[in-house]
Design a binder for these strands. Structure first.
Ligand SMILES: NC(=O)c1ccc[n+]([C@@H]2O[C@H](COP(=O)([O-])OP(=O)(O)OC[C@H]3O[C@@H](n4cnc5c(N)ncnc54)[C@H](O)[C@@H]3O)[C@@H](O)[C@H]2O)c1
Ligand SMILES: NC(=O)c1ccc[n+]([C@@H]2O[C@H](COP(=O)([O-])OP(=O)(O)OC[C@H]3O[C@@H](n4cnc5c(N)ncnc54)[C@H](O)[C@@H]3O)[C@@H](O)[C@H]2O)c1
Lengths: 211, 211
DNA sequence: GTTCGTTTGTGATTGATTTCACAAGGAAAG
DNA sequence: CTTTCCTTGTGAAATCAATCACAAACGAAC
């Protein structure tokens, strides 16, 4: 089924369902109800059903959803039925934390290229990879058929790095630099801005007694 | 002005306005229009005006908003007119990246406590701090009057760490562990789940040709 | 095969957020 | 003082997202 338009938040909830389904499958359950999924995922049963119904009817009335089949379908919907090749730009503190984190591999994301512009970083061995010169990014992205980029450079370099990634054919970017990147239509951009997260906590703490 | 209810997304936009205002102030401009703010912030002028109007009338018709005054007001609204004391739990890869990142200090957030449960980590000197035993978290949080917690432990420990932070009086938590934490009402929780971000990119790349 | 208890799938409804559109305010120029 | 040109502030309208509520479907029990 090819749904008209799925909201960004609905897609994020699909990721949550997938985690909950993993837990249920591990626990040996063969079916789950929308209520079960909602309980562990932190939303309402109606929302679970609505989200899933956008992609077809997977459940049986009176019974619920078959765990392993639903897990497969959601995996497929999210595009996780295959592995993704990711390039990481910025071999700094955050870049290293991300690179040496194993969690992503388990979800199907392989970092197959690391880039930096610091001569002290270029040539370093990171796991089985070598940190590449940012100058070679076009060649390496094409050679390794990298599909997504993660930007963990300082703000000042972020836009130019994004431009290079896009020019090399990357279609999606996850940006950690606290700045707004401009990307052409058709390129997917997600920002992770930790300063905004902290500021939103500060706002909540500041206004909680007034609410 | 004490507005009835401000949406989470409106608060996040306030953070963006603050960044844009900083840039304008640095550039020596004394007034900005909602159009200017929208242009650099990536939203519409009407939304800028609506967001700001929730907190009062800061602008002059025909002229725009006074940059430095608006910056001060937004700073105040977000609760950034003071410094915040933050505790970091999990002295691992991501914890180190966050701890040694200077960007947060500039926004008013001081990490004044680091905790771990690994004997190999406890006692390590991190900057001018010493990594504390998680067992002492209650004492240290109270002594240092820590107000916010950042959780960067493995999933398995995240809930128990959250419970400890809350028991020690922390009112807001930023959680990086990819799991849903349960917190009592009155406690503010924000999650940063990088797996979900990557999966949302995978979804976009998978469905882009069909859109 | 009928009844009963359960749970899905979905149109209708409610609610929240964003955008529209314009009257009113203010500066500047003549 | 009057006209002109901008830009704000805000109700009204439109769009988008979440929730409700219920008929239809299914399994189990007898
Ligand atoms: N470290 C954190 O915890 C943290 C938290 C929030 C946001 N961020 C943001 O993430 C980004 C990276 O942070 P970090 O702490 O890892 O910084 P860092 O200085 O440790 O690393 C940045 C790396 O990018 C490289 N670089 C600079 N310009 C480049 C270019 N043009 N091409 C390729 N590589 C280039 C540098 O050589 C360096 O190795 C920054 O934008 C920062 O604001 C980091
Ligand atoms: N590293 C990354 O880039 C990355 C990316 C996405 C998500 N995460 C998440 O962030 C968390 C931390 O990741 P990491 O790579 O830094 O892991 P890590 O293993 O390097 O560090 C985790 C630290 O937490 C400590 N710890 C464990 N249990 C504890 C407890 N009960 N109390 C106090 N400290 C405890 C460990 O001793 C260790 O030092 C994990 O939940 C991970 O899933 C990390």
């Amino acid at each position: 089924m090819r749904p008209a338009k799925i909201s960004e938040s609905a897609v994020r909830r699909l990721s949550l369902y997938l985690r909950v389904l993993d837990a249920f499958e591990l626990a040996g359950k063969t079916t789950v109800s929308s209520g079960d999924l909602a309980e562990l995922g932190g939303m309402t049963p109606a929302q679970v059903r609505k989200d899933l119904s956008h992609f077809g009817s997977f459940g049986k009335r009176g019974l619920g959803y078959p765990v392993s089949e639903l897990r497969e379908r959601v995996t497929e919907i999210l595009g996780l039925g295959r592995r993704w090749r990711v390039g990481l730009v910025g071999a700094g503190k955050l870049g290293a934390a991300l690179f040496f984190y194993d969690g992503f591999r388990g979800q199907g994301f392989d970092v197959v290229g690391v880039f930096d512009n610091d001569p002290g970083k270029i040539g370093q061995h990171w796991g089985r990879l070598v940190v590449e010169d940012i100058e070679s990014i076009d060649r390496v992205v094409r050679a390794a058929r990298i599909e997504m980029g993660i930007i963990v450079t300082p703000v000042i370099s972020a836009q130019s790095v994004a431009d290079l990634l896009i020019a090399a054919g990357v279609g999606a970017i996850l940006n950690f630099a606290p700045t707004r990147l401009r990307v052409p239509p058709g390129i997917t951009l997600r920002n992770v801005n930790l300063e905004i997260e902290l500021e939103s906590l500060a706002f909540a703490l500041t206004h909680e007694n007034g609410a």
